[in-house]
Design a protein around this nucleic acid. Structure first.
Length: 875
RNA sequence: GGGCGCAUAGCUCAGUGGUAGAGCGCUCGCCUUACAAGCGAGAGGUCGCAGGUUCGACCCCUGCUGCGCCCACCA
């Protein structure tokens, strides 16, 4: 059982010091077991699985954002009474992690081959232990309310079993196949890559036009990859291209290799591009591969897995980028062959992990046949079973699933789930399920490759819950409710979870809502990157400003799908807000506020009624905003209420009420406690630490983590009280403005008489207005030296002031002139509308009425200001 | 090549068919007994450009310009 620390209000420091208490509070929550889910409880379930961070790195700001949003959602649901499970874990991140560890090895002058597969994998596990620990610590610092008893890793035994089960099932359903295809090959990582692991960029290259054949039977083809001509086995032209009709079906000689290759007619060729003729290299280009299949062309592999040339004497052994100029140089030796060389900007694929130029390569790989799976994934979004926020991104999702290529899932790596397929001595292929023994005997060998890391990630929403075992967790918490992740992995991850979830879980999509947050950028809107040196480490802000300030900053900027620029000032502002909350609470506690339930309406002042009603409204606003995942607006609404309304006005009015003592003060304390209680609970999902500290002090209860989420009192708002408070605020502001214009110091008291306050309904607010505006009661011999008229909702109040001859006429004239100009502008605008005959017909009645009212107010204002100005000679 | 998004105050961003908003920054004045990480009062915007619809457009439509992102097998 957690015990709230007892704090003596008067001992509270004037600043919130997060560093001193956060760790202890977090430990207290863990000890109390608040974050441990119980599948057997009767509560409605609410589950979010963490997007498992890669074990390779520590958490960056994007993670901090993601975790803040997830934590806010889960904390709120917990307070609403749900059985909440936020399941933590990490991803083995196959190629990324292997690369990191290989780089470590390189520092020791070793390669993975020096260690051998087994020892290398051991080494990666060591890395995982070290790096993973850092991540877990960061999550604690952030205050993540995760269920640590359920922590998973994509390579742990259970998840490996899930992977094997899934593979086997897809294999048996013929949704996984092995084929020789042109795939994206990274010559540095020496593995196949899926389409989305390739990043395209516009690179400068050369387009070289080469004459094939000779004399009348020659044709010019163009290429940016001259070295591939060593593997050419045809030239292709469009079937309808009359220029080349006579050549189709003939053979033509390829320069350098001297190979005689057929000229084929193929629809793929664009007759308008270049010369309309294409060299065909089936082994090294995906299009050419297809052409080759259609025309039964041989595939001639001329490059090895490192990208070095394997054939043709003089070029053998050259790396591809050395071979390219070498081939061109050799072609130039015969002056008739190279028809043209020109610079050329074109799109080139790079390995997303190491930036090496990807080489299309013919090889035998495993693929997932995505069509039926992608169809289901599209349908789930189309029919609304899963909703994507923001909806604009749903279109992008659909475009993608509708045009998806088969997914290459085998990787020539060592770190990952080994493909559960065994090959026999007589070309047998056996897929081995998790409960089956692999075949033994001479010549049987397991496939050496591992699976794409996204294969296991795609299973995460159910494998992490225990699938394929029918665990209580799977039954209770699948489908999960919300997925919170960045839009940058919509295709990598979200689509694949949808495909696999729908397939493995009998058509049940893995989540109801997908929230795609934006990317974190630096203050100038630039992407954070290590090479730019503009990365902000969340730990730095945690140390300087505390977890709540960091979380609040991130949540406040979190508009769905929109990137966020982060600057240090934001964190400072959030820290200041936490401190404001701290001091407001401190004030309330010092003055004896305590939680006594919702205050009885009887005997409340206008100020009390107003703030209680406002708190009610904020509760429903925040609920609505949370339900629609508008975190930024949740924060904004609470910020405005706490700072601009509760602190700036209610607390100041409360001071007056407390000074009255007795029953009035007692009720004020109740209202303070009530409103503060609501505010703290509403803020808790975003700023858990400061709210916990203050709430336990206010209520003497166990923990706000398990407090009830606020609900509105359900009573009808008192608009009269609200209007009177608005009037008080306006009156006070106008008087302060006047004082400022007149150059009065804040401390300087001025005697004043308020005329018309009673009829304006502000009779009982006389003291408050005087305190807030620093006005003294008029002495018996009061004589006003100047006056100020303020037009309020309840009527006009005239403030007569004894300025003792210090009236600054010039300042007043300036202000009046400004007021006059504004009023005249408003009048003109209103007249323009009202004089338009169509306006009265077409505009809604309330708009017309409002416009008329505005006009009248402007006219009255002009009259008053003009009178003022006339009464103040320019002397 | 296809698709999408964004252009609003100095900066980062909200916003609604009917008088332009916030935070930070800036100016002036204040240590006013919760808070100087604070208080009070201000300045600052022809809501990218050009048309159109409408009584009325920052908001809806069209085009343009600029920026960004995603997808793509342009040799």
């Amino acid at each position: 059982m957690a015990v709230a620390p007892s704090i003596e209000p008067t001992q509270l420091p004037t600043r919130w010091s997060p560093q001193e208490v956060e760790a202890a509070l977090y430990q207290r929550w863990l000890d109390a077991g608040y974050f441990t889910a119980d599948p057997a409880s009767g509560r409605p379930p609410f589950c979010i699985v963490i997007p498992p961070p890669n074990v390779t790195s520590s958490l960056h700001m994007g993670h901090a954002l993601e975790h803040t949003l997830i934590d806010a959602l889960t904390r709120r649901r917990r307070m609403l009474g749900d059985e909440v499970l936020w399941l933590p874990g990490m991803d083995h991140a196959g190629i990324a992690t292997q690369n990191v560890v290989e780089r470590e090895l390189a520092k020791e002058g070793k390669s993975r081959h020096d260690l051998g597969r087994e020892r290398f994998v051991e080494r990666v596990w060591q890395w995982k232990a070290q790096s993973g620990g850092k991540i877990l610590n960061q999550m604690r610092r952030l205050g993540d309310g995760v269920d640590w008893s359920r922590e998973r890793f994509t390579m742990d035994a259970g998840l490996s079993r899930a992977v094997q089960t899934m593979f086997k099932r897809l294999f048996d359903d013929e949704l996984i196949y092995r084929a020789e295809r042109i795939i994206n090959w990274c010559p540095r990582c020496q593995t196949a890559l899926s389409d989305i692991e390739v990043e395209h960029s516009e690179d400068a290259g050369e387009l070289i036009s080469i004459r094939y054949g000779g004399g009348a039977a020659s044709v010019v083809v163009a290429t940016t990859r001259a070295e591939t001509m060593l593997g050419d086995t045809a030239v292709a032209v469009h079937p309808d291209d009359e220029r080349y009709q006579h050549l189709v079906g003939t053979e033509i000689e390829v320069p350098l290799t001297g190979r005689r290759v057929p000229v084929v007619a193929d629809e793929h060729v664009d007759p308008d591009f270049g010369t309309g003729a294409v060299k065909v290299t089936p082994a090294h280009d995906p299009n050419d591969f297809e052409i080759g299949r259609r025309h039964d062309l041989p595939t001639l592999t001329v490059m090895d897995e490192r990208g070095a040339i394997t054939a043709h004497g003089p070029f053998e052994g050259l790396a591809r980028f050395e071979a390219r100029p070498a081939v061109v140089a050799a072609l130039r030796e015969d002056g008739r062959i190279v028809a043209e060389e020109r610079p050329y900007l074109h799109s080139v694929g790079h390995c997303s992990r190491c930036d090496t130029v990807v080489e299309p390569r013919l090889s035998l790989q495993w693929f997932v046949k995505v069509e039926p799976l992608a169809k289901a994934a599209g349908d789930a979004v189309r029919d609304g079973r899963t909703q994507i926020h923001p909806p604009e991104l749903a279109k992008r999702y659909l475009d993608w699933v509708d045009n998806m290529h088969d997914w290459c899932i085998s990787r020539q790596l060592w770190w990952g789930h080994r493909i559960p397929v065994w090959y026999g001595p007589n070309s047998e292929v056996v897929c081995v399920g998790p409960d089956e023994q692999p075949p033994t005997g001479d010549g049987w060998q397991q496939d050496p490759d591992v699976l794409d890391t996204w294969f296991s990630s795609a299973l995460w929403p159910f494998s992490a819950l225990g699938w394929p075992v029918r665990t209580a967790d799977v039954q209770r918490f699948y489908p999960t409710h919300v997925l919170v992740t960045g839009y940058d992995i919509l295709f990598f991850w979200v689509v694949r979870m949808m495909m696999f979830g729908l397939y493995a879980m009998n058509g049940t999509a893995p989540f109801h809502d997908v929230i795609l947050h934006g990317l974190i950028r630096d203050a100038n809107g630039k992407k954070m990157s290590k090479s730019q040196g503009n990365v902000i480490d969340p730990l730095e802000w945690l140390d300087h400003y505390g977890a709540d300030a960091l979380r609040y900053t991130l949540a406040r900027g979190a508009n769905p799908g929109v990137d966020m620029a982060l600057a240090e000032e934001w964190a400072q502002g959030s820290r200041n807000f936490c401190n404001k909350l701290w001091n407001a609470s401190r004030f309330a506690l010092i003055n004896g506020a305590a939680l006594r339930g919702a205050p009885d309406r009887d005997g409340l002042t206008d100020a009390d009624t107003w703030i209680v009603d406002r708190a009610d409204a904020v509760v429903s606003d925040v609920d609505e905003l949370f339900e629609s995942f508008q975190f930024g607006k949740v924060c904004e609404a609470l910020y405005h209420f706490v700072w601009d309304e509760f602190c700036d006005w209610y607390l100041e009015l409360a001071k007056v009420q407390l000074a009255e003592g007795g029953q009035r003060a007692e009720r004020t304390r109740a209202v303070l406690g009530h409103v503060l209680d609501i505010v703290l609970r509403l803020l808790h999902p975003v700023t858990p630490f400061v709210t916990e500290t203050l709430w336990t002090a206010l209520t003497a209860r166990e923990s706000i983590v398990v407090a009830d989420w606020p609900s509105a009192t359900g009573r009808v708002a008192d608009t009269g009280a609200a209007q009177r408070i608005i009037d008080v605020r306006k009156l006070v502001t106008e008087i302060r403005r006047f004082r400022a214009d007149q150059g009065l110091k804040p401390a300087q008291r001025v005697a004043a008489r308020l005329l018309g306050a009673d009829t304006a309904g502000l009779g009982e607010h006389d003291t408050a207005v005087r305190v807030l505006a620093r006005l003294d009661a008029p002495p018996e011999s009061f004589s006003a030296s100047t006056s100020l008229e303020v037009s309020l909702g309840g009527g006009i109040v005239i403030v007569e002031l004894d300025m003792q001859g210090v009236v600054d006429l010039a300042a007043e004239r300036t202000r009046l002139a400004k007021d006059l100009a504004i009023a005249e502008k408003v009048l003109a605008a209103c007249d323009a509308k009202l004089n338009n005959p169509v306006f009265a017909h077409k505009a809604p009645a309330d708009v017309v009425a409002k416009t008329q009212a505005r006009r009248e107010a402007a006219v009255a204002e002009i009259a008053r200001v003009t009178a003022r100005l006339e009464a103040r000679p320019n002397q």
